[in-house]
Nucleic acid binder design. Structure first.
Lengths: 338, 338
DNA sequence: ATTTATTTTGCACACGTGTGCAATGTTCTT
DNA sequence: AAGAACATTGCACACGTGTGCAAAATAAAT
C-alpha cells in the first residue's frame, strides 16, 4: 500500500485533465494565460478530485502568504472580542486569513507571539495589547513583518499605530459631570497601566487641575467587572461620598453601578453619576443605560486592514488618530439621554 | 540593488556559522543529531541574524502544518468568545496555531471556511456553529482535514463531535420551577434553530408533556439580548402572565429580566422566576444573579484539543458527551443561591 | 499562401525546509 | 593497536507551488 497521500495536489489534477501541471497552476492564478478549453478541463478535474490550492506552497514561492496575525490579551472581553470580530471580518474581505495568538498581559508573551507570527511568515501583525520589545520590533522588521499597533505608546519603523483621543474624551467627561451639577468627583480605574487607561486618567486629572478641582482616585485589580465592584465599595464608603465617578472602562463602570445600587442603595443618576468608556453592548442594556464613549471599532478595523492591504511594501511609520464620540444615555444627572 | 530578501533563511545562517544547511535544520528539529559545538555555532548565527524557522516550508515537507482552523459565527458573543479563548489557548499550549474564520449563520459560509482551511492545510477544523454540507465534509476527509463539531447534529467520518446534555438540563430547569412553586410556565427562545437551542426547547416540552403541563412558547429574532427584551414584552403581557420563564440562552434571559423589571415593574424572583443557559459572565453580575447552566467551556476545549493532539491519524468517528451543571443563583423563587 | 503578431503550453528553476544515505569522525571494546 | 560500534556531517532529493523562457499553436495581416 503506497502511503496514502494526505491531500490532492496540482500534479494529480494535471494528470487527470491531461495537461501540464503549469496549466493547473495558471488556471488558479488570476491573470495568467490559459485557453478556455484547458481551463474547463482543469476545473472539471479539480472538481472531481476535490483539489484546493496549497496556500502554504503558494506563499512560499510568491512571498505573499495572505496570513495576518492578530495578537492580544483578554480577547474574551466585550470590547476586545468585538474588535477581534471586526478585524477578522475585514481581513477575510480582502482575502487574508487571520491567525489568532492569545497572550497574557506580559510584554514577554507578546514577543513570543510575534516570533510565532514570523515563523508562519505572516505579512503583518495587529497588536491589540501589550508592547513588543524594541529588539523584537527590529526582528519583525528584518523578517518583513509589518506591525499595526492599536492604542500603544510609540511606534518603530515599518509600522503604523492607531490612537484614540482618550485624553480629550476624559476631559469631556469631567465637564459633563460639572454641567450636570456634580461636585465631588472621583475616578475609578484598574492598575493594569495600559496606555489608553493611563491617557484617560491623565486627561481627567489635567482638566480637573486646570479648573482647580480635586479628584479622588482609586485603582484596583485587573480591568473588569469585579474590580469595578471593589472600586465602587471603596469609593462610596468615603466620608465625602462622590456624586460622580468616571470609570476608565465600561466593565468597571458596570461594577461600580452595581455596587452603588445593590450595596449602597443609591439611585443612578440621582445620587450618583457615572461615565464609562468603550460602549460595550452591556452599556446599552436597560439595567445600565450607561453614558459612555463609543470605541470606533469599525473605523479601527478598517484603518488597520486598509493600510496593510493597500500599502505593498514601503510603508513608513504612521499614526492614525481616531475619535471616540460620546454616547449619551441615562447615567448622568440631568441629561436624560441628552 | 539585489532585491532585498523578505526574510532570513537557514541558508544564510549556515553560511554565517560555517556549516551546512542541514546542520541548521537539525539544530531546530527536536531529536535530530547535532554536536554541541555546531549547535552552539548555529544558535549564535541564528540569534545574530534573527532567524526564525519557516513553518510554511516545514509544514510543506513534513505534512504537519501545526495549523488548526476555528470556524464559527457570532464570535463576539460572551459565550462564544470565551470558548474561542479557551480553544486557542489550549491549541497554543500544544504547539498549534489557530486560524480564525468568521462565518455568518449560513451553512454555505461554513463550507467556504472549510475550503479555506484546506487551502492552508490545516490539520483540523473546530466548528463552533453551522453545519458543513455532506459534500464538503467529504472534501475535508479527502484532504486530510479532521473535523471537530461542537454541538452539531450528526458527524461524518474522521471527525468527533462534542455534545451537551441540553435536554436533561432543560428537564431539570422545569422541575426546578415546579419545586419553587411556579405554576405558569413559559419558554423563550430565538428562532435561530440551532441544534442546542432546539434540544433545550424539546427537553423542556418533553418534561412538561410527561407531567401533563402546558407551556407557552415564544420565539423571536436572532439569539441575543434585544430578542430577550422583545420576548419578555410578549410573554409578560399575556392574560395568564407566566411566573417562570426558561430562556434557552443567558443573553435572552438578561433581556427578559430587564423587560420584566424595567417595563413591567416585576420583582425577580418574587413575581417571576428565570433560568438561563450558558453561564456567561453577566449572569453572575449583581444586577442579574441568574440561575443558569454552566457551559463546560474548559472541558469542551480540552476534549477537542486533546483529541486532535493525540490521535495522529486513524481517529474514527466519535462522540463525546459533556454535562452542563446547574449554577444556582437568585433568579428562582425560594432557592436563595440554593 | 506566406509572413507576422499573438496566444497558449510545457519545461525547468526557485522558494525554504526535513531527512535518508553514505561518508567521515569519534569513542569504546578487547 | 586495531577493529567495532556509534555519533556527526554533507549531499541530494522531495514537498507543492508560481513564473520566465522558449517552443508550439493559433490568429491576423498582407
Amino acid at each position: 500500500m503506497p502511503a496514502r497521500k494526505a491531500s490532492v495536489s496540482a500534479k494529480d489534477v494535471a494528470a487527470r485533465a491531461g495537461v501540464s501541471r503549469a496549466a493547473v497552476s495558471r488556471t488558479f492564478t488570476p491573470g495568467a494565460s490559459v485557453s478556455e478549453e484547458t481551463r474547463s478541463k482543469v476545473i472539471a478535474a479539480a472538481e472531481a478530485l476535490g483539489y484546493q490550492v496549497n496556500h502554504l506552497a503558494r506563499g512560499l514561492i510568491s512571498q505573499k502568504t495572505g496570513i495576518v496575525a492578530v495578537v492580544g490579551a483578554d480577547l474574551a472581553t466585550p470590547y476586545r472580542s468585538e474588535l477581534l470580530r471586526a478585524v477578522t471580518e475585514r481581513l477575510q474581505a480582502v482575502g487574508r486569513v487571520a491567525i489568532l495568538i492569545n497572550t497574557d498581559r506580559s510584554d514577554r508573551s507578546v514577543d513570543m507571539a510575534l516570533q510565532q507570527a514570523i515563523r508562519y511568515r505572516a505579512e503583518a501583525a495587529i497588536v491589540l495589547s501589550g508592547m513588543p520589545d524594541k529588539s523584537i520590533s527590529d526582528l519583525c522588521h528584518r523578517n518583513g513583518l509589518r506591525l499595526v499597533l492599536i492604542n500603544r505608546d510609540d511606534a518603530h519603523s515599518r509600522s503604523i499605530q492607531i490612537r484614540l483621543n482618550d485624553a480629550d474624551a476624559a476631559r469631556l467627561a469631567l465637564t459633563s459631570f460639572l454641567r450636570a451639577g456634580c461636585r465631588t468627583l472621583a475616578l475609578a480605574t484598574s492598575n493594569a497601566g495600559t496606555p489608553s487607561l493611563v491617557a484617560r486618567e491623565e486627561g481627567f486629572f489635567a482638566e480637573a487641575h486646570r479648573r482647580g478641582l480635586s479628584v479622588t482616585c482609586e485603582r484596583f485589580g485587573p480591568t473588569g467587572y469585579e474590580s469595578g465592584l471593589a472600586l465602587g465599595e471603596r469609593l462610596l464608603v468615603l466620608p465625602e461620598r462622590p456624586d460622580a465617578i468616571f470609570c476608565t472602562t465600561d466593565l468597571i463602570a458596570c461594577g461600580v453601578m452595581d455596587a452603588a445600587r445593590h450595596r449602597f442603595s443609591l439611585k443612578i443618576p440621582d445620587d450618583l453619576s457615572v461615565i464609562g468608556f468603550d460602549d460595550i453592548p452591556q452599556a446599552s442594556w436597560d439595567s445600565y443605560q450607561l453614558t459612555t464613549f463609543r470605541q470606533p471599532i469599525e473605523e479601527i478595523a478598517s484603518s488597520a486592514v486598509d493600510w496593510l492591504a493597500e500599502e505593498d511594501g514601503d510603508g513608513e511609520a504612521r499614526v492614525i488618530h481616531l475619535t471616540a464620540p460620546m454616547s449619551w444615555r441615562k447615567s448622568v444627572r440631568g441629561s436624560n439621554g441628552k
